[in-house]
């Protein structure tokens, strides 16, 4: 089906369909992460001794990653601004910078995990590490998915096509960012 149905272009509620979809995806993700983090917090409260395990995490690497993600979110905002003014090439450039930020995040993450695994802390090393790898891993998958989708959207945007998607991937990227803002103190700093 090449032509889009009428349904796709209607806007009876006054909101663009693309934005509605983005919010739907984010809302369902919030509940997935919410369930995981609530489970973690309940366990953490019941197990003060996990703090000794949490002390083995590399807080400086987590802090650096927070900085990297926040910077990439700034690029996402600039990409949205460029798309709004109709400048697809500029939007694509900023999207690729955002994707570069995501990739940097994943590299730092890989470096961290390598050290931790070499030190003998793996997924099955106990309650804290199970939550640590599951939560950060799930978040990392979202970063990876975001980077891949962003590169596709950047290719479209460079040809001045589907510019409304730049905003959507931006909203998603901020969401990934915010999840990390929760994960970082909960996994690295909390004692």
């Amino acid at each position: 089906m090449s032509s889009k149905p009428i349904a796709t272009s209607r806007s009876a509620a006054g909101l663009p369909t693309a934005r509605l979809v983005t919010w739907w995806v984010i809302a369902s993700e919030i509940f997935i992460f919410g369930g995981l983090l609530a489970s973690y917090v309940m366990h953490r409260l019941g197990h003060p001794e996990w703090a000794a395990q949490a002390a083995h995490t590399h807080t400086w690497a987590g802090a650096l990653n927070t900085f990297v993600l926040l910077t990439s979110s700034l690029f996402a905002v600039l990409a949205h601004k460029a798309a709004d003014s109709g400048d697809g090439a500029r939007a694509a450039r900023f999207l690729r910078l955002t994707a570069l930020g995501g990739t940097t995040f994943l590299c730092i993450k890989a470096f961290e995990w390598t050290h931790e695994i070499e030190a003998g802390f793996v997924l099955s090393s106990g309650g804290f590490w199970s939550f640590y790898y599951t939560a950060a891993g799930l978040h990392g998958l979202h970063v990876l998915a975001g980077v891949i989708i962003m590169l596709f959207f950047a290719a479209d945007a460079a040809r001045n096509e589907e510019l409304q998607r730049v905003e959507c991937i931006g909203i998603y990227w901020h969401f990934v960012d915010i999840i990390w803002i929760f994960l970082f103190p909960l996994l690295y700093i909390a004692r």
């Binding site: 739907w24 369902s28 997935i32 992460f33 369930g35 995981l36 489970s39 599951t134």
Partner: peptide, 12 residues
Amino acid sequence: MFSVGPLIAGAV
């Protein structure tokens, strides 16, 4: 959508 999210995490 609101109720299934935590169970997806739980299933993992």
